[in-house]
Every structure is written in structure tokens, then in C-alpha cells.
Amino acid sequence: MADIVLYRPHFVAFIILFLLGIYIMVVSLNLVKKLIGMYLMQTSIILFFITLAVKKDSTIPIILSSATAVTPEAYANPLPHVLMLTAIVVGVSTLGVSLAMVIALYRQYNTLEEDQILGKMK
């Protein structure tokens, strides 16, 4: 267990952020706070993927000169970055749609608290 904390601190950070996100989503009654939790959870997954790409003593994956032979070990893995670029777009569009829904709910029920909305629906 101590090994994981010492040598893989990014995994620990990811797990804490992920669980915190889910906790906020479940516990808070305010719809916007729920969305904050949701976005935190999505961002923690982005952190997880990005840390997969890291290598020791590596640089950004741009080949500067074509003269020397390319050694894959010298560059960070670009694929997780590209995947997460797409995942960020997906996350932002989800957030956009959900905020639009929150605005529509607020216009209708004049509150953002879920218990009050449920009370008014009855």
C-alpha cells in the first residue's frame, strides 16, 4: 500500500478526485453542485489518462530534426493526450447540455434545490 502512495501518487490523486466527484454528485441537493461533482469526476479520468503517457526523462512528442533516428523512449506517448482532447470536448458538451437543462428547470420551478423541485412536482 505504501508503495502505491510513494511510487504512483498520480493514481492516488486520481482515485481521490474520482470518489470526491461521485460523492459530491450523490450528496448535494443543489443541481449546479451536482454538475460540479460530475465535471470533477470527468476531469479525474483525464488526469488518469494523461499520467499514463508520462515517461521518465522524456520530452513532448514533436520531432525537431529528421537527421537523427527517432527513439520512442525519448518522447511522451501522444495518444492519451489526443484521446483526452476528444474527451474534454465530450465533457464540455455534456456540461453545456446539462447547464441548459438546469436553466430550464430554474425557469420552471424557481429553485435549484432538488428536494424543492420534487416537492413542487407533486
Partner: peptide, 24 residues
């Protein structure tokens, strides 16, 4: 709109959790 908005919001929250787990 109306009542469907709240059910759509719940669907969105749960659906996003599902998609995040899949991505993980």
C-alpha cells in the same frame, strides 16, 4: 419541458457516470 426536464437531468447524471466508467 415540464416534468420531463427533471427526469432528463437524472438520466444525464447517471448516463455520464456510466460513460465515465466505460472510459476508465
Amino acid at each position: 419541458g415540464g416534468r420531463s426536464l427533471h427526469s432528463a437531468f437524472c438520466y444525464l447524471i447517471l448516463g455520464t457516470i456510466g460513460a465515465s466508467l466505460y472510459l476508465l
